[in-house]
Each structure stands twice: as C-alpha cells, then as structure tokens.
Write a protein that binds this DNA or RNA. Structure first.
Lengths: 217, 217
DNA sequence: CGGGCGATTGATGCAATTCAAGGAGTGTGG
DNA sequence: CCACACTCCTTGAATTGCATCAATCGCCCG
C-alpha cells in the first residue's frame, strides 16, 4: 500500500465496515474540526483538501487527496477530528464506520494490517511535507507538488503528464507556504522554460527530467 | 496520553516488550534511515532529534524528543526507518522490541490502545509542524518553539519557565525553517523586549503572555 | 591556556510578499 | 443566449523579511 490505499480484496462484515457511499458536493465539508471520530472515509470519486485552522483565523492546507485514498486519520489521537476535509469537486466516499476501532482491530488481522499501513503512510507523508516546507525554495516546492500530483494521477490510472488541477492557485500556495502570485509566476516561468504548458487548470508536463532536476537542485 | 507517552502501568510479557535499556552517547544514532524496524524506543533519560536526509545531502530536523516520549514510528510504513534519530546528550532508551508488531497487536488490548495513542499523537504532531512551517513568520515560529519546549519541560515535571536547550541554534533554525543567525537575532530581540533572558543555552522565560501573543499574532 | 566550535552582530543582497491593476473564465438570471 | 457579476488568474512595481556573507566574540573542553 504505497499510497495509503485500501486493497481491493477487502471484504469485511458490514457490521464493522459499512460500505455505504455518501455524496459530498463541491466545497462542502466531509468532516470538521471537533467532529467525533465515527468513520474513516475512502474516496471513491472526486478529491478533497484537508486543512487545519489556526487560532487567529488563518488556515493551513495539510494535504490533497484523490480516489482510493483514505481520510480521517487525524482523529485517531483524541477521537475527534483535528482538521477540515473539504470536497474540491463533487465527490463520493465510502464510510468505514468505526463503531469501536479497538474492537475492530481486535477481530480482524486484515484490518490491523491495513490500519498499520494507512497510519504509516500518513506519518511518512506528513514528514515529507515537513521536509518540503522546511527546506525547499519556491521553485523546488512547486516542482515537488507537480511530481507528486503526476504520480498520484499515474496511480489512479491516468496519464501522469496531462491532468487537471482540482484546486485554485491560492490553495496550492497555502499548501506549499507560498502566495498565489508566486505560484502563478512559477507556472509562467516553468512554461517559458518549456517544462510544461498550463492553461487555467490544465497542466501538460513536457519535461519531467527538468522538473526533477529543479526539485533536487 | 496527550503527548505520546507510555503509561506507567504498562506491564507486558518480556517476550513482547523487552524492557532492556541501552545507552546512546551524545551525537550517536539510535537508528538510521534504512535500518529495519525492529523496535520502538521509549526515552528514559536524555533527548533526541529526528531528521530526514534529502537526496541532495541537505537534511531537515522533524522533531525533538524528551524523556517518556517514543521514537521509531516512522518505520511503520515499510518496516524500515525513514529518518535518523540522534542523541542530543548522553541518553538512555528502553527497547520495545517488536518481533512481530501485528502479532503484538493481536495479543494485547492494552498495547493496541497504546499504539493507537502513539500513532495518533505523531500524526497530530506532524500536522502541527506543517502548520508552523507553512504559515508562521520567524517570530511566531520561535515563539511556538519556546512554548512547546516549555510545555514539554512541564510535562516532565520541571519548571516550564527555566530550562536548558539541548540543541544548537543551527538545529533550532533547521527545525523551524530558519537560519541560525535569524534564530540568534530573535533570541536577542525577545531578550530586549523583556520576554526572556538567554545565556548560551539557558533560557528563562519572563513573560509567557507576550510569547503567546506573538505566536497568535 | 589555547584551539575550536558555537553564538552574536553588522552589512548587504535577494527571493518572495505585498500592493495594485487588469484580464479571463464561469455561472446565473433575465 | 447574452449580459453582468463574481471569482480566479496574471503580470508589474515596490517593499521587506529573512538569508547570505563576514568578522568577532566567548565559552567549553582537552
């Protein structure tokens, strides 16, 4: 499970994991800070952003999530969500209702393994984000973001070199610790350098080597 | 378990958790990137920093850890450590040898609860770090760091307002995404403003209110 | 007591932000 | 289906927060 995905062969009693689907319209919240930890959520279609609110009203996006990824682990700590999950487009999720997560872990080896994988993935994802925010410059950050997005596209079975961004410039900037203007300028710069073309939110990566070079510079 | 601590009442068969202590001298590694996931480590005395190495040779400190905190969760993902843990002073840790972590989880409800707590704490700690790195300015970052350190001191039963920093200015800077010079200047500035006194690594916080105000500004 | 690492402080530079204006795309209601 | 409004994006110019470069100081520790 390299990317926090649930395996397809997961067949669990419905009493433990309810495969109920729910629809979340664009811009609406799947969960909010303080919501009790009642479920994990596997994305079946669409995409989400997760964000933390800071006490002065600002907020920080902590991740973008796509099909087959799992949301909600931030509530493990104290049984309440510590962040918001907002749909970036009309989306569908499967509820993995956790009536009692300890109970669930007790019963099924399969679930245990899955949970350890999911949690491990989230930890390493977060550490990677700390690395990005803490030590990369703006060019490197955006290059990293694009590589990451490309890879997620590929994982979903789409072309890694041609995709639609689901979020605004402002969100990308917030996520990377930059302003929306800087993000926009970087897209223009990368475009001039022949690394990609960008029309509104349609990205076409032309030179992945160069992107990698920037990221590692 | 608000802070990733192991409860004192933890009594588990030695076959599962070996309470063996090992000593790690200052500057030496408890584990390195790539080391197989053989144990978790509970700090019994001393302190550690954890860091990720970036492909170009730079590194990013992801956390500072003190007595009763647990290290090693970064290996959950793929059974190998993704970071370094380096002792900042002569330290002692208890090995929580994980011969088979799934097996361990299977046997003991207590361990399951502890693990969920530890893992949840690490996730929320990481998210908090993303928030700090992504959206705070230099003053706010250092204020946050000092508050955090003060709180950890208090948790350990020491005065939250008077403590010794175990790391160099360079490490604080690296951790916060700043240079060592900026950190030094900020200490001087805070000192001039009567927020604290600092002599070398001895910190005395004089005005915690002001520190909080900076952090939330 | 001397060597060396760590910390401070100053001068300068630059990357990214801020402020500002205009343009382009999207959706909605007439 | 068009017009208007609104949100999002781009680009330029000025500003600034933090980094970089550099010199000196001072505290340990052998």
């Amino acid at each position: 499970m390299p990317n926090g995905k649930l395996p397809n062969n997961l067949k669990i009693t419905e009493d433990i994991i309810v495969k109920e689907r729910i629809r979340i319209p664009k811009k609406e919240a799947l969960y909010k800070t303080g919501d009790p930890f009642s479920s994990l959520y596997a994305i079946r279609s669409g995409s989400f952003k997760t964000l933390i609110e800071y006490s002065n009203g600002q907020s920080q996006i902590t991740g973008f999530f796509y099909r087959d990824e799992v949301l909600g682990l931030d509530a493990l700590n104290n049984k309440a969500h510590a962040s918001y999950a907002i749909a970036m487009e009309d989306s569908e999720v499967c509820l993995l209702a956790v009536k009692d997560i300890e109970h669930m872990l007790e019963e099924f080896t399969e679930i245990r393994e899955v949970m350890v994988g999911l949690v491990g993935t989230e930890i390493s994802r977060s550490h990677n984000m700390i690395l990005t925010l803490g030590s990369l410059n703006a060019d490197q950050k955006l290059a990293m973001f694009l590589q990451d997005t490309a890879q997620k596209q590929e994982t979903m079975g789409y072309s890694p070199n041609e995709f639609i961004l689901r979020m605004r410039r402002e969100d990308i900037g917030n996520y990377l610790g930059l302003t929306l203007e800087t993000v926009s300028r970087l897209f223009s710069k990368f475009s001039k350098e022949g690394i990609l073309t960008i029309n509104n939110r349609n990205v076409h990566i032309l030179n992945r080597e160069k992107l990698l070079a920037i990221q590692k510079s």
